[in-house]
Amino acid sequence: MTRLACNDVAHTEPFALRLRFEDQTAQPDLETMMNTLNKLAAFAALSSVVLMSGASAQEAVEGSGLEALISGKRVYLSTPYGGEFPLIYNADGTVTGDGTELGLARFFAPRETGKWWVEGANLCQQFPTWYRGEVSCFTIEKTGDTTITWVRDDGQSGSARIEG
């Protein structure tokens, strides 16, 4: 009897499965195929539970909780090039960004101080020249004790760590 086997693919491909016939010349019988499909369905159900529980680990932060999370802290934005861009959110409502260490002086003023505030579920900020002086607002989700993800009102998103 031909058996259809289900094997894990290398660890570089999480949640991927490879099906193979142990006897390449014969076709699997219906019972074997149904057993394999049931195993795959159970795996898919378990995977969705694991993924959903991981998603619930993210916690949206807003209002006074957002202010407490950010005020008086340094937020280090992850950059696509592997560095971090620090923003210092002072309790007096000022925010200072400093990209000097990232070599950003070639592109714009590497250090600038603006203002920040919380508006409902959004963290908003405005700098004198950065972003043409326009207000930018972000939704924040806490992903760990000192880590967050953010989505700016224009759809840009990223991650950061908080210190202080």
Rank of each mutant, 00 (worst) to 15 (best):
F15E: 09
S71K: 13
G103C: 03
F21M: 12
P28E: 06
P86V: 04
M1W: 02
T94H: 08
F138N: 11
P80S: 05
G133S: 12
F127I: 07
P128T: 06
F21C: 09
R132E: 15
Y76H: 07
G82M: 04
H11K: 10
F138C: 07
E31D: 13
L19D: 05
G155L: 11
V95Q: 07
E67G: 00
G103Y: 04
R20F: 12
A160E: 08
W116T: 01
W150T: 04
W117S: 10
G72T: 02
A68T: 14
L66F: 04
G82P: 03
Y131Q: 14
R3M: 07
I70Y: 05
E101T: 12
T139N: 07
E67W: 05
D23W: 03
V95E: 04
L37I: 12
S157L: 08
V135S: 08
T94K: 13
I88H: 11
R161P: 00
C124S: 13
Q125W: 13
G65K: 14
C124L: 12
P28W: 09
V61M: 10
F85Y: 14
L30H: 12
P110E: 12
S48M: 12
N90V: 00
W130I: 07
T139E: 11
R132S: 15
D98N: 15
L4F: 01
N122L: 14
L17P: 00
F107Y: 15
A57D: 02
S136C: 10
N90E: 13
G158E: 06
A105Y: 07
S56M: 09
E134H: 13
W117G: 02
M1I: 05
S47V: 04
T129L: 10
T129H: 15
T113I: 05
W117T: 09
V75W: 04
N7W: 08
H11V: 03
E163H: 06
T12M: 04
P110I: 00
Q24E: 14
A121N: 13
Q156I: 05
T139K: 14
Q125R: 15
V49E: 11
R20D: 10
E119Y: 05
M1K: 13
Y76F: 09
L87S: 03
S64Q: 13
C6H: 10
V75Q: 03
